[in-house]
Write a protein that binds this DNA or RNA. Sequence first.
DNA 1: CTCGTTGCTTTCCATGTCGGAAAGTCTGCC
DNA 2: GGCAGACTTTCCGACATGGAAAGCAACGAG
Lengths: 101, 101
Amino acid sequence: MTATPAGTTPQFDAVIHPPPRLQICGLLAAVDTMEFAAVRDQVGVSDSVLSKHVKQLEEAGYARVQKATIASRQRTSLSLTKVGRRAFDAHVAELRRITGV
Amino acid sequence: MTATPAGTTPQFDAVIHPPPRLQICGLLAAVDTMEFAAVRDQVGVSDSVLSKHVKQLEEAGYARVQKATIASRQRTSLSLTKVGRRAFDAHVAELRRITGV
DNA sequence: CTCGTTGCTTTCCATGTCGGAAAGTCTGCC
DNA sequence: GGCAGACTTTCCGACATGGAAAGCAACGAG
């Protein structure tokens, strides 16, 4: 077994790599949960585009979408799953390896 | 002016980001020059694919292709230009920012 | 109860990018 | 002149992406 510094086995992940999704994961990795609108604004994409990317992360089992109706307003919050967090960390480790940190 | 730690202004670069090119740049950034065949093998792509990616890096002014006939063998060596090196560093800085190092 | 609005989702579509396969180019050797 | 080596370019078919617009569900207003 090849031990890796951070404890993560570097692994390139095509689902995470594309710019918009790398950003989404980066944002979600820093928090527990973030609202759809906040992510959309931070990433700078349209509703439809964010929705589509989140869907891909969901299908990969990396993200979770929680809908709630709070104060009679629809609130959709996003978060990374445990698996997603690991995949993200592994991908980042791989990027570091590739870019020769 | 927003100063950046490493002295590089983070800047996402779409020419560098795609996996194959990120790898190529990563390899070239670590050396002065590397031979075409060596890069091809490290990156794990075919001649044609490497050739096409290198061409894109060349057109962006990031890579240099030097052909020489040494010992009656064609030797094509690749290297990053100063601009390419800066772009790569800036892109890596941006990746770090996004992935929240 | 019906309508308009908010907040996403899904569909449609026009581009773009990618990689594999195959043909092409260039150079030196036989 | 013909052939091999080392890339290059061309020709696709397969996807991936984003913008625009139509869909939907849940309210609040009238």
